[in-house]
Design a protein around this nucleic acid. Structure first.
Lengths: 300, 300
DNA sequence: GTAATGTCTTTTATCGTGAAAAAACATTTT
DNA sequence: AAAATGTTTTTTCACGATAAAAGACATTAC
């Protein structure tokens, strides 16, 4: 099996959702940009849709014949990238405990366990290494450094440095910058979420990421922007894993965000700094309390 | 050809140099740690040394028969890692001009040109991506972001943030920390180099890296320490490429380092900050002047 | 009995290969 | 002629295979 066709399957599923809305589909290049795939893939999708009687396809004419049924969709798990599959498996092992710092990581074993080739695992580990959780021994195995308290402290130290600077840069942005529109929109979303926090509290993590990414982008520094990938990754798994007081935590965070947004809009650097510091402090606290004290520290 | 034996060849060459010093070689495990390779490789080395009449080898007895001749050594170019070969080729293309921002990077073409497999090139590009000079388009090619003025500014911004913090942490280290010994030793090396700067100015870059790495390590933050890889890489190629006023620049830098070291030893945070700022400012200036103004800026 | 050597097994590094997907080129349609 | 469709070529992604190198186990020497 040389390469899975998940790109095709995922685009096919997304294209099915388009069928609900229109009587006929746009041109092939247009569909390509819409779905974010090449024309080659678009044509495969159209070919299959014709086969399954969803549309008729004759050159430019692509008429929708019927609405898609649930069984027209490819199963969700077949639309994932290999990299996503590997990351999930890897993180599950890492967080499932028993993953002590200093432990060796075996490429071959990982590959066999997940059921993929070694090359994909190797490439994943190389990409993953920038998160600072693993390290390569030359000509030899990878070493797990562990998701320890030390890691969380080092991560938050950089995060705070970067975000304070980005927030200051944000507040100094000219009035006609589009970020202010984006910020207003995010503020609305926050207010909406705050009102329905009792039922929608689990939607916060996604909003959180968008908000902080907007701020970091104001730094106009690729290293700061890219570093948010590390934070986002850690928080992504942290949210999945630490569900204690999730509702309360998120409610507090939404409130802090709103104060933070207010401060940004005031363009008063002192206020921005204070609001940012306050939010970062509670974010750090949340992360730290979720890491047991007795986790082994990293070996030399 | 599945894997070159450069580890063996490189270790063999280093082992030859050991032969000059002793009449007989230590045990296999000892040689292994000394050369940083496994016993398997040590045994291959010993086997060959016996074959070429350099030593006699019978179990524990490894007697040196003659001094190594120049032709006993493997050629330098056969001792390089594939990753090093690829990096050099890639950087040569990148700095040889004609590498405009926005340009596509073709894995296959690169692999063919260098004469290696695509996998190695892919892995190199993934590792290299953390330097912020290239970026991957999903399911598609890599894009060169270019070694532009913007890049240099973003890089130095982070560098200054990190180094100021590390320098402060350094100065706050307890008196009995081993870093003070390391610093004294570096100071001596600086003084020695300063005295013979006229002839040894090209040895500065190596000293520079060791000095700044020592300081960054005081941050005890893996992200700060790891970021120095980006700086080191850029400066490594920058030194090779911008030879204008090298002697003068290095002479100035050595002086700044000595003042910086003095400030650190005074443990006066104000002085440390000032000395660090001064040096970083001139380092930034040096880097910036070496980038032509008219280099194309990164496309969206 | 500790530490070396000798032997065997496992893992890593790298390649060539083939299918998926993108991209380039040619042809037709509006 | 601009933009679509049709066709062909190229590139990326992922795999299994193989030699280099590491590591584990067994045996011998001190």
């Amino acid at each position: 099996m040389s390469k899975s066709n998940n790109v095709y399957k995922d685009a096919y599923n997304r294209c099915l959702r388009l069928l609900d809305e229109t009587r006929s589909l746009p041109s092939e290049p247009e569909l390509g940009t819409l779905l974010g795939v090449s024309r080659t893939t678009v044509r495969s999708i159209l070919a299959r849709m014709e086969e399954t009687g969803l549309i008729t396809w004759n050159k430019r004419a692509k008429t929708v014949l019927r609405e898609p049924r649930p069984d027209d969709f490819f199963p969700e798990e077949e639309t994932d990238t290999l990299a996503e599959i590997i990351e999930r498996s890897f993180m599950r092992r890492l967080l499932a405990g028993g993953a002590e710092a200093g432990m060796q990581i075996n490429e071959l074993e990982l590959a066999r366990e997940i059921g993929v080739g070694t090359t994909s695992v190797r490439e994943f580990l190389i990409r993953f290494s920038r998160f600072g959780l693993i390290e390569k021994r030359r000509n030899s195995h990878w070493v797990l450094k562990g998701f320890t308290r030390a890691f969380a402290l080092e991560l938050t130290e950089i995060r705070e440095m970067f975000e304070l600077r980005s927030a200051a840069a944000f507040a100094a942005l000219p009035q006609d910058s589009t970020v202010w529109v984006d910020l207003d929109r995010l503020e609305d979303e926050h207010r909406l979420l705050a009102r329905e926090i009792a039922t929608r509290f689990n939607e916060f993590s996604e909003l959180d990421e968008r908000f902080h990414r907007l701020i970091h982008r104001a730094s106009r520094n690729r290293f700061i922007v890219d570093f948010y990938d590390v934070i986002a990754m850690i928080f992504h798994y942290h949210y999945q894993w630490n569900k204690a007081q999730e509702r309360e935590r998120n409610e507090v965070a939404v409130g802090e965000h709103l104060a933070y947004i207010e401060a940004l809009k005031s363009r008063d650097l002192g206020k921005v700094d204070a609001a940012c510091r306050k939010h970062l402090k509670s974010a750090r606290h949340t992360l730290l309390t979720s890491i047991p004290e007795n986790r082994p520290l990293q070996k030399s």
